[in-house]
Amino acid sequence: MPDRAAPHPDRRALLVSGAALSGAALAGLGLSGPAAAAEAPALPAGPLSDLPLVAPRTEFVYEAVVEIAPLVSLGDSPLGERRIVPITGGRFQGPRIRGTVLSGGADRQLVRKDGVRRLDALYEMQAEDGAILTVRNQVLIDPGRDGAPDYRFSTIEMTAPEGPHAWLNRLVLVGTLHSLRPARAAVLVRAFRLA
C-alpha cells in the first residue's frame, strides 16, 4: 500500500535530474555540448513500436468555389511580405451539405523570404437550410523547385451550430487549393475528413 504521507517528487528536480543523466550518458560516450547532438548515435529508421503502421484515409466532404477580390499588399515584415485577399462569395457542395460562401471573409497571407506562402483564410458559408458555418483554412504553399509541382495542402477547422450540421464539429479536415484563374477570380477548395 503506498505511503500517502510520502512527498511527491518536485517536477523541476526531476527535469534537472533527467538532464544530468542524459549529459552523463553523452559524456560517457565522449560527447558533450552541441557536438553531442550531431555525433549522437543515429536512431533506427521506421516506427518506434510494434503496433501496425496504418495511415489515415480520407473521405471527400465538400468542395467550394471561393470568389476573391484583387490582392492587397500590406507591406513587408521581418517574416516576409504581408498580403490580404478579400473573399466576395461563392458556392460549396458535397454529399451531405451544400450552400453559398458569404462575402466578408478574407485570406491573410505571408510570403516568406524562402518563397513559401502561408495563408490563413477565415470566412463563413451558409448551408441551404440557413445554418451558418465558420471556416478557418490554413494553407501552406511551397512553390515547386527543379520541375516539381507546388505543394498546396491545408488544415480546415469548421464550426457549425448545433443541429443537422453539428457532425462537422467532430472532424479533422485537410484540404487542397487550386487557383481558377484566368477563367475566373476564384479558388477551388476541396475538403476531406481524416478517417
Rank of each mutant, 00 (worst) to 15 (best):
A5K: 02
D129I: 06
R4V: 08
P44G: 12
L133W: 02
A64V: 07
P9N: 03
I68H: 06
D50C: 09
S103E: 15
P78W: 02
L173F: 09
M1S: 13
R152C: 08
V111H: 09
E157P: 00
N169S: 05
T155F: 09
V189Q: 06
A25T: 08
H178N: 13
R98V: 08
G144N: 10
G130E: 11
L133Q: 01
T155I: 15
G89V: 10
D3G: 01
V135D: 02
T134C: 03
I132P: 01
A160G: 09
A195W: 10
D129V: 08
F92L: 02
A185M: 06
G130W: 05
G104L: 01
A131T: 11
I132R: 15
V101Y: 08
R11T: 13
A38V: 12
L140N: 07
L48D: 12
G175I: 12
A6C: 05
V61K: 01
R136S: 11
G163N: 09
V16H: 06
A186Q: 02
W167L: 01
D146R: 02
R136F: 03
F92H: 03
N137R: 07
G89E: 09
V72P: 00
E124N: 13
V139Q: 02
L180D: 06
L51A: 14
S17N: 12
G28F: 03
A166F: 06
Q138C: 05
L194N: 12
P78F: 02
V189A: 08
A160F: 09
N137P: 00
F192K: 01
Q109S: 05
R96F: 07
I87E: 11
G130C: 04
S22Q: 12
L48V: 14
D50K: 08
D76E: 15
A183T: 14
R136A: 07
A20W: 01
T100L: 07
R96Y: 08
P56D: 11
L43I: 10
V135L: 04
V139D: 03
E81L: 07
R152D: 11
P95Y: 03
T100G: 03
M1A: 14
R136I: 10
A131S: 13
D50A: 14
A38Q: 07
E124S: 13
V85N: 01
A195R: 13
L110R: 01
R181D: 13
D129C: 03
D120S: 14
V66P: 03
R181M: 14
G115M: 02
A131E: 06
G147I: 08
A20D: 10
Q93H: 14
V16A: 15
R11A: 15
L31Q: 00
I141F: 01
G104C: 02
G80H: 03
R152E: 15
H178D: 14
R181P: 05
G80W: 01
P161S: 11
K113R: 15
T176C: 00
L180Y: 08
L26M: 14
S49H: 10
G94M: 01
E81A: 08
P78I: 04
V174G: 02
A185Q: 12
R96S: 13
L26N: 01
R118Y: 14
S103I: 10
A148D: 14
R82M: 10
G104Y: 01
F92T: 05
